[in-house]
């Protein structure tokens, strides 16, 4: 069996000394009613790097992701214990400004959820709430976001049409564009590529790679090769516990825990 404290790479420890951490999770427990969904998670997220969360369905990846911008607050009978510091601020402090937090920590959901509005308005939505811009400035942001999400060429001639008419792969890129438009510092991506064809998927990975020069990204993916390709650090979670976290290269070439090995090589547990 596995020890209580999962291993973290020395690289991460060095990083924490260097204080370039975007988020620090310590002793996090999450309950849905009486049921424990996350069990004592502690991990560091390095700024301007990509951290991947992998693990079997139902292990708690989305639950963990939602903790980073307190989206679990919206779920009845979901209780969070422990601490998450983002840019050295305890986001579960009672005085935390949640609106500001969610602007700083953007989220792309597992199931694309476009608003029943035009393509343009979907992307402009958050920006409008946040600041007063000229229509030219707003158009520029929408164009930049759609381009960054590799959707621009497909929709540039029909920005006024309903977003609900887009294919699911297009909707997925649309919600990524929407998240990018408000320029968050941390971007949470929950299975962003699950509806994408291989080329769009590679474009998205390329985008993630570009974005990490300015943003911190936490990505949940079931695609192990994708985690191996895009992330700098990988955390393996199983049944609500952090089994192992390491730099992605070591985790995929010689994981320290048997459970990790079994999972990434497709063996029975």
């Amino acid at each position: 069996m596995q020890s209580e404290s999962a291993t973290q790479s020395s690289l991460l420890q060095e990083a924490s000394l260097a204080k370039d951490l975007a988020a620090v999770v310590s002793g996090l427990h999450v309950y849905y009613g009486q049921r424990l969904a996350l069990d004592n998670i502690s991990l560091d997220v390095r700024e301007k790097h990509v951290t991947a969360l992998i693990g079997p369905s139902g292990c708690g990846k989305s639950t963990l992701l939602r903790c980073f911008n307190r989206l679990n607050d919206l779920i009845d009978d979901c209780h969070v214990q422990g601490q998450i510091r983002i840019f050295n601020r305890n986001i579960y402090h009672p005085d935390e400004d949640i609106v500001a937090l969610r602007r700083q920590v953007g989220m792309v959901f597992q199931r694309p959820n476009p608003f029943p509005k035009s393509i343009f308005d979907n992307v402009a939505y958050g920006v409008r709430l946040q600041q007063k811009l000229s229509s030219r400035e707003l158009r520029e942001i929408v164009r930049w976001s759609l381009k960054a999400a590799a959707l621009w060429d497909e929709v540039k001639d029909r920005l006024d049409e309903s977003a609900l008419q887009l294919s699911s792969g297009q909707q997925q890129r649309l919600v990524i564009a929407r998240a990018l438009a408000v320029k968050p510092k941390v971007l949470l991506l929950d299975e962003p590529a699950s509806n994408l064809d291989p080329i769009s998927m590679l474009k998205l990975e390329e985008l993630i790679n570009e974005l990490k020069t300015n943003y911190t990204i936490i990505i949940v993916t079931h695609n192990m090769q994708q985690a191996a390709r895009v992330s700098d650090y990988t955390a393996f979670i199983d049944q609500g516990r952090l089994i192992e976290m390491a730099d992605t290269r070591s985790l995929f070439t010689h994981p320290q825990q048997k459970q990790t090995e079994d999972y990434i090589t497709g063996r029975y547990g």
Binding site: M224, A228, T253, H254, E261, I264, T265
Partner: peptide, 9 residues
């Protein structure tokens, strides 16, 4: 198969 970890090694 895109082998990983021990399979890759």
């Amino acid at each position: 198969r895109q082998p990983a970890a021990s399979d890759l090694r």
